[in-house]
Amino acid sequence: MAMLEVNNLSISFGGLHAVDGFSMKIEKGELYGLIGPNGAGKTTVFNLLTGVYKPDEGIVLLDGKDITGHSTMDINKEGIARTFQNIRLFKAMSVLDNVKAGLHNHHAYNTLTGILRLPKYFQTEKEMNQKAHEILKVFDLDQEAEVLASNLPYGKQRKLEIARALATDPKLLLLDEPAAGMNPNETQELMDTICFVQKHFHMTILLIEHDMKLVGGICEELTVLNFGQVLTQGKTADVLNDPVVIKAYLGE
């Protein structure tokens, strides 16, 4: 069974068909790329998958379970975590607390336990700290655990967002332009990190990207979106050499 199966997903805003009849299938453990020119509807697809928008039509199956139209919170609990194109960190909180917020549903104790500082509080907080440091280490952020998220340099903020998403222990990780605004060195480093996450956590990853080099380098399969519709789909090498794709990107 595919990890994510999307069938005929559509949404319109007014008269604009932002996403129209979108379908795709991602296997478990796969690193999948979603590309397309500006305004093609890539982020809208992410918003549909994560419940920010409710689709007009179509269904989304995660690991065989229908999650179409569920709330963002429930979809995260079902196992989809995401990052954002414009970074959305908890800026006034420390790096560690950002990740610990991600652990919210997996290491739980109730509010009264927290206020009264019952033994379960100390035990769970300790587990959380260990787990959070483990995740931060993967992203080379463990030295900056006590730094405020807003004080991190840009590239590290992007990494922290991925770390926070991973903390929710997802089945599927959605990355919205993780390399946006990065220089070539940072991009290379990020590509390595993404590949490492895929292998280390056995993670299924769907990636939106503009950077063709990044996409071609690490994605196994691609879907190309243009004007809200699927232009072509398949193995990375085939897709990138498809004349239709070249035309959509570069013109005739």
Binding site: T50, V52, S71, T72, M73, N76, K77, A81, R82, F84, R88, L89, F90, K91, A92, M93, D97, K100, A101, G102, H104, N105, H107, A108, Y109, T111, T113, G114, I115, L116, R117, Y121, T124, M128, R164, A165, A167, T168
Partner: peptide, 28 residues
């Protein structure tokens, strides 16, 4: 104690970025 606990982190996460808080499964 509330502020320095799991619930407090959730409350501050919502303050800092509501959409991101929702995306990591926090009940707003």
């Amino acid at each position: 104690n509330l502020v320095n606990s799991r619930s407090g982190r959730a409350i501050m996460a919502i303050r800092d970025n509501r959409i991101a808080a929702e995306s990591i499964g926090i009940n707003i």
